[in-house]
Amino acid sequence: MHLLEVEALSKSYRQIGGESTLAIGEISFQVEKGEFVSLVGPSGCGKTTLLMCIAGLIPASSGMVKVNGAGISGPPKNLVLVFQEYNRSLFAWRSVLGNVLFGLEVRGKLSSEAEDRARHLIGLVGLEGFERHYPWELSGGMQQRVAIARALAYGPEVLLMDEPFGSVDALTRLELEDTLLKLWQELKTTILFVTHDIEEAIYLSDRICLLSRRPSRVVRGIEIRLERPRNQLATRADRRFVELRNDIYKQISDQAAK
């Protein structure tokens, strides 16, 4: 049994004129326990919509999402989505600790162990000493670290991430990628990651699902057999890394030309 299964999922929107347009056309793929999978595709191919459907936040038009073999209707308990816009997803009236405790609080698990867990995760994302700060007092990269700690404190089996590093500067982005890999290895969480940055996808993932433009479908699944732990300099300089990047880039630009 797969941990996460997306079966023939499609999503169409009704436009103002009454016509409906197909944003996602029959996407199927699976994610195994402990895997790091990235969805890569041209911008506007409906990656965010797909992730929202998988998270149970918006209903799919047809098809199914299964977690541990069971179809979902609404947000599943063992799955959390991290949004791209950290500044719009953190609670401005809660401190860093208060934000990280949020998921545990909702589950009614507010105890000293919960707080220990929250503090531990704040430490893991590198924000020790900032527990009492408010999100708006932190830089963008730090805010996204808070959002990641908050999601992981909830203890999800699957972490969905929607271009989480899309709004931070290039250097911060590299740091955040390494932090995420460290967390993934330490906590053994399964991650489904959406990005339009090909190199980022290769650097992070075990496997990449390449999506076409609208209405999007899975064009190809690509195994990334680069050794771990990965290294920003060595891995990116690896001949296989460069080949993968060129190969994927070519596929995407062929898509765009069609």
């Binding site: 998270a55 936040l57 947000p75 799955l79 719009r88 997803s89 949020f102 998921g103 909702v106």
Partner: peptide
């Protein structure tokens, strides 16, 4: 109130009543 905040609440399993109180 930003929709993203409400989505965030829902992804953490927040019900309607809890969303009212907490968000």
């Amino acid at each position: 109130i930003d929709r993203t905040l409400l989505y965030t609440g829902r992804t953490f399993g927040l019900g309607r009543w809890q969303a009212l109180r907490k968000i």
